[in-house]
Design a protein around this nucleic acid. Structure first.
Lengths: 144, 144
DNA sequence: TTCCTTGCAAACGATTTGCATTGGA
DNA sequence: TCCAATGCAAATCGTTTGCAAGGAA
């Protein structure tokens, strides 16, 4: 269940692009915005009981509209999560054992330091950064 | 063409694990160690003219031996690169336009700062970090 | 010689697509 | 009403695997 504000932002974004905000798409957004990490199409298929092809098609539409973003993981699995302008900037803890991905926020001070490191190295490489993510691999508390 | 030292380290690592260092595997290592970013199985297939299944099988063997590591990217494509103990620790510049991935090293001072940030946030999340990578998305110099 | 490795083709699993039908604005 | 969205099944694409033949130690 997305907050009313997020819900409104999505509605307006989709309307601007002539994309309908249908029952199925609302269900997907609901599942993704209440998750604590990215979810795969097949997880959503099981959770929502909606045809797999519809899950894939709607996720693609929502991705093109910039509402969700894909996260590519082990075994060729793609997991989706809410875009950062809706869910807030965050990083990932990737468990090398069970493959789970957990979202984390980092303290503002750290984020500032990170941004400055990125500006530095991107400039040195003639690269224009638009986004970044710190991927921390290791073992989650369950797999420790 | 890997350096003689890297070559020796790989030989010894594989010997320890009773894995043969064959012509095909040497070709893969040669291609990966002279690349400036990760390569996919199909790119290696085209570049080396070796059967796809052999490319996949050898990459899996080399991955299990800890010689190469997979990098999962857009459209479910897996790209491989030399493991960090052979190629050195580095980060990635991912072009959102052409999908290319470029390896970069960052200055020691920055790396130290990064490590301390990671230790901090992982501890707070009861996560045991084993590795990390800073993924910087944006436009490469060619696509700018 | 003895296994490990290779090649080929068939099998797989995740994702996409064609087409007829349904449904939202 | 009218075109986008959906459901189903078939097609695709990257990747894996069974099995017989070849090659390294």
């Amino acid at each position: 269940m997305p907050t009313a504000s997020v819900e409104r932002q999505i509605e307006s974004r989709l309307r601007d692009r002539d994309v309908r905000y249908t029952r199925g798409r609302r269900a997907l957004i609901g599942a993704l915005s209440s998750a604590d990490g990215p979810k795969s199409a097949s997880e959503l298929f099981v959770e929502l009981g909606m045809p797999l092809s519809s899950v894939y098609r709607s996720l693609n539409v929502l991705e093109e509209a910039g509402v969700v973003i894909p996260h590519h993981g082990a075994r060729g699995l793609t997991r989706y999560e809410m875009a950062e302008w809706l869910a807030g900037h965050h990083h990932h803890l990737v468990c090398v054992n069970c493959g789970s991905v957990e979202d984390i926020q980092i303290p503002q001070g750290h984020e500032t330091r990170l941004t400055s490191i990125i500006r530095d190295v991107a400039t040195a490489a003639s690269f224009t950064p638009t986004d970044h993510s710190l991927e921390i691999e290791g073992r989650c508390s369950r797999c420790a």
